[in-house]
């Protein structure tokens, strides 16, 4: 009977080993989970930016009006364009879109427009920490 069962010492040592090993493991899991959430957020921000950018640059050049457009202006009927076309923006309210359209003028004619789309998004879900994603493109006036 002497050798049977677990001694308190053994249990204590085992728990210590488990704690020492599990702590970084759990921390790693937590960090991985956060990274996954960040990846998801950035990817969604990137997709939101692309969605708006692609729909904007596919409009006829002359329809695009220069100016800064906030999230609300963009979602409420595409005020940045001289058109009734509504844009299909499929992302959550957490993703704050804004857009800037700038005319590039040469010889009194608008040759190009510079379109910048910015997405402000939470670093992770339910996080208060915000991050910006930005893409820019210059489009050409094919009417010239």
């Amino acid at each position: 009977m002497k050798n049977k069962g677990l001694s308190l010492v053994e249990i204590t040592i085992s728990m210590a080993i488990m704690i020492i090993v599990m702590l970084p493991a759990f921390l790693t899991f937590s960090s991985g989970n956060q990274n996954i959430q960040m990846t998801e957020s950035e990817f969604r921000a990137h997709s939101a930016a692309l969605e708006l950018m692609e729909q904007t640059i596919s409009l006829p050049f002359d329809m695009l009006k220069a100016g800064f457009y906030s999230e609300e202006e963009i979602k409420n009927g595409a005020k940045f364009a001289d058109t009734d076309a509504m844009y299909h923006l499929s992302f959550d309210d957490d993703y704050k879109l804004s857009m800037n359209i700038e005319d590039i003028i040469k010889n009194n004619r608008i040759y190009f427009k510079k379109v910048s789309v910015t997405v402000k998004y939470p670093l992770t879900k339910n996080s208060n920490q915000m991050k910006n994603f930005n893409i820019k493109v210059i489009i050409n006036n094919d009417n010239i």
Binding site: E10, S14, I17, V21, A25
Partner: peptide, 20 residues
């Protein structure tokens, strides 16, 4: 056998560490 629990803890810990 004595030390069995420690062995188990070490194995589980190692596996978790590798997984993490």
């Amino acid at each position: 056998n004595r030390g069995f629990t420690i062995m188990i803890a070490l194995i589980i810990g190692t596996v978790l560490l590798v997984l993490s």
